[in-house]
């Protein structure tokens, strides 16, 4: 077992995911099977290999700091689940 149910709970909290008891048990089994399969990668010695994070090499793409078309406050709030006084409204934080 690579990952126990307690660790599944910890990871779920890091990801801000609530899981049902059934999901916790199922994911513990399934994640173990998947992580076991990932073991394959340890057959390869990659100590001298640079990682690839992007298939096409990129440098930072800069642009001029100029005024462009932007969305209005109204348009930006249109999909908000809750709003007040031109802001997104959320339940209490502390």
């Amino acid at each position: 077992m690579k990952i126990e149910i307690g660790e599944v709970e910890h990871v779920a909290h890091l990801a801000r995911l609530k899981l049902s008891e059934a999901e916790k048990e199922l994911f513990t089994v399934q994640l173990n099977a998947i992580l076991d399969y990932m073991e394959k990668l340890n057959e390869l010695d990659t100590s001298a290999i640079e990682p690839t994070f992007h298939a096409v090499s990129h440098r930072n793409t800069m642009r001029e700091d100029e005024v462009r078309e932007a969305y209005s406050q109204e348009a930006s709030l249109e999909n908000a689940p809750d709003r007040a006084k031109g802001c997104f409204r959320v339940p209490k934080i502390i």
């Binding site: 609530k18 689940p81 809750d82 959320v90 339940p91």
Partner: peptide, 23 residues
């Protein structure tokens, strides 16, 4: 659940809203 998309109803605080919304 803050800016767009679904938000779970009746959460008592922000953390509960995140967890329930994503659940």
């Amino acid at each position: 659940g803050v800016k767009y998309g679904f938000r779970a109803a009746k959460s008592k605080d922000l953390m509960e809203m995140y967890l329930e919304t994503r659940f």
